[in-house]
Design a protein around this nucleic acid. Structure first.
Lengths: 194, 194
DNA sequence: AAAAAAAGAATGAACATTCATTTTTGATGT
DNA sequence: ACATCAAAAATGAATGTTCATTCTTTTTTT
């Protein structure tokens, strides 16, 4: 147990260091030596846990994405109505993006650059399925606009990424009221009006 | 004239190569030597036009951002009504993001990573002012929701970035009808309902 | 005491930038 | 028109550094 525990700690420290350094300096300016130093580990040790730098960043991405989706669907239940389900999921996503902004920033960076390889991107995207299923159900019930899920996502979920980035930059702050307003915008942009 | 013309051509070729390589490989995997090769120039020549790699990427960012905003406001006139003005601007932005996707992708990458330095980011953001002015006017007239411009941007403009990225990836295609739908979503998410 | 984990130092490749030379440009005098 | 030539522009090859990865040795675990 002791051995395994220790290993997991080191692995986590490496992943945490990767996120922090990539967020602050970008992938191009995060050498393995710095990651090692921040994780209190020798550079050589990284290679006991990961194949190489690409593998490290891929695995970090998958791990953070898994956390994100686990968090997102924690309160959700398939038995909920479409509207209730969407509100539940949306609010969790908002909470994640605004409270766990280190993780959210890392995902935003990965999703807008070619640093993660295709298989890992695919792996990361899988877990969003419940939301897509909910939308499909909503369209059948006539509650959700009959448009592509990409458009629904673009208008209801993606804005949170932008708000998160700007909150992180310190130029803007989302409070309770604004979150509620943002939620109303999100819902009214996807609900079917007719 | 001949001399200056030639210089501008080389500079443009370098900027174009930078955009293409950074889009496809990321900043970390675009060596100066590759940029030089793609621009049909010796590596040393880059340093006649730019101070160093950071300067090259900063200047590229500013240049593309300037193109973007010039394009955006080309049809806009301050005398327009708020609704007409917004529609005019929004549709130009959509056109830019979907037709000039190389440029738009580059901006998206820069806006979500720490590869551009702060002064250049500031420089790039300045030109968006007319849209913010329009929104402020709209709020005074009671036509636009009285919320932060960041929220207005997040819900009406930013979704286009997401759609652009996914269109580029080939998983999704925006046609005329969908653009019209997207515009309706954008407008109804910012117009004042009461 | 053998096996596993970790470490620090070494290795070699890749890369940004500079250097020494060559080529191009365009003004000037014929 | 053309030849000359200094200045500017461009080049390919060096330079020195940084960095990912590996190697050998040491430490820890069981």
């Amino acid at each position: 147990m002791a051995k395994l525990q220790k290993s997991i700690d080191k692995r986590n420290a490496l992943i945490k260091a990767t996120i922090e350094l990539v967020n602050n300096n970008g992938f191009h300016a995060t050498p393995m030596s710095k990651i090692a130093k921040m994780a209190n580990v020798s550079p050589a040790t990284i290679y006991l846990y990961f194949e190489n730098k690409q593998d490290l960043v891929n695995k970090t991405y998958i791990e953070v994405k898994a956390q994100y989706t686990a968090f997102t669907f924690a309160d959700y239940d398939v038995g909920m109505s479409v509207e209730e389900g969407f509100e539940t999921i949306w609010k969790r996503i908002a909470q994640f993006k605004l409270n766990e902004s280190e993780n959210a920033m890392f995902l935003a960076q990965c999703d807008n650059t070619p640093i993660i390889d295709e298989p890992s991107l695919q792996e990361g995207i899988k877990h969003l399925q419940p939301l897509l299923d909910l939308w499909d159900r909503g369209k059948k019930e006539g509650v959700i606009k009959p448009v592509s899920n990409y458009i629904l996502y673009a208008y209801s979920i993606n804005p949170l990424s932008f708000l998160m980035v700007n909150q992180k930059r310190g130029v803007f702050q989302l409070d309770k009221t604004q979150i509620e307003e943002a939620y109303q915008s999100a819902w009214s942009s996807i609900k079917n009006n007719k």
